[in-house]
Design a protein around this nucleic acid. Structure first.
Length: 306
DNA sequence: GCATGTCAAGTTGTG
DNA sequence: CACAACTTGACATGC
């Protein structure tokens, strides 16, 4: 079992900067690029710091925030690293980070956000999504991440048709993206049952989010879904990815979807204990929640098996 | 200095 | 029909 932190820290002094298209647009291009250069170098340095920090804390995986290089794919203010005054320094920093991660066996992944929708019937949405994925592919190559995980997107009244469209996009993706692409069940549309056979058929590893599964059940037990998910990773030689979280206001009444600060140990699937897999902890207390969960699970692993 | 509104993008479900 | 939920905090602005 390898536990992962998602994107940010609560207490540890690791900070990422950003900017908006709106503020960039008020500046001449040259000044835009200077500003972006400073932010990108800051973020590349803090990514390295993030990995040093998770390594020190005994955390074995890190999900890298998508806006590491803010607005890079924006139609009006987008840019390439080569455009930035410190582009070369930024590249070097990412290479250091890649070497550090490999040496310390820290698994890296990406989770592009909800705007990446390969199943959309709108060609512009798909084109933007591909552009965004290629950005993630570039980052993943640079720092040595092995997973770019997305959701299946919208349904548009026809789940099968939507997945069909997603499948038809796959050949348009670069190898950098395609070899890392995974699909995750969500909490409104696509259950594990919806995705598992599709993933199997098109050799896409399935990322199993047990919280989403509990919010949107499909008749599969957690153990069944876990085993099938694990099968979908077999050919890749990579470890299964799972996501865990707890509902902010409990399972009784109220909306279970918002994430709690910490993981309630009773939400952690017993069948994951001791399994060879990476578990991203989606909790608002960030590294504090990962550390707390790791401590609790250590206790359960040592307990006699019944 | 500090509080507050804003921020590229999609889709779905709710009020 | 409009807006909030996904998730989210840092930044820009204005007092």
């Amino acid at each position: 079992m390898r536990f992962g932190l998602c994107c940010l820290f609560k207490k540890e002094p690791v900070l990422f900067r950003t900017t908006t298209a709106k503020s960039l647009l008020s500046l001449p291009r040259e000044v835009q690029l200077q500003k972006l250069s400073a932010i990108c170098f800051h973020n590349a340095s803090n990514l390295h710091l993030a990995l040093e920090t998770v390594q020190r804390l005994g955390i074995g995986a890190f999900r890298i925030m998508s806006p590491l290089f803010p607005r890079m794919t924006h139609p009006a203010v987008g840019y390439f690293l080569e455009d930035l005054p410190e582009g070369e320094k930024i590249r070097q920093k990412m290479e250091e980070t890649r070497i550090f991660a490999r040496k310390n066996d820290i698994r890296l992944s990406f989770h592009p956000d909800q705007f990446v929708v390969l199943s959309s019937p709108h060609s512009q949405v798909v084109a933007n999504s591909i552009r965004e994925l290629e950005y993630h592919g570039m980052l993943a190559d640079a720092v040595g991440a092995d997973v770019i995980n997305i959701h299946a997107g919208g349904v548009y009244g026809d789940k099968f048709g939507a997945l069909q469209r997603l499948k038809d996009i796959l050949p348009d993706l670069s190898a950098a993206v395609r070899k890392r692409l995974t699909l995750e069940n969500d909490d409104v549309s696509y259950t594990p049952r919806d995705l598992l056979s599709f993933c199997e058929r098109f050799s896409i590893p399935f990322v199993y989010d047990v919280h989403h599964h509990r919010c949107l059940p499909d008749g599969l037990s957690v153990e069944q879904a876990t085993n099938l998910a694990q099968d979908s990773w077999k050919e890749t030689g990579k470890e299964l990815y799972g996501h865990v979280s707890s509902p902010r206001s409990g399972w009784q009444g109220g909306n279970p979807k918002p994430h709690a600060d910490y993981i309630d140990p009773t939400d952690f699937p017993a069948c994951w204990l001791g399994r060879k897999m990476t578990i991203d902890v989606e909790a608002k207390a960030k590294e504090l929640a990962v550390i707390a969960l790791m401590d609790q699970m250590k206790g359960r692993l040592d307990a006699p098996v019944r």
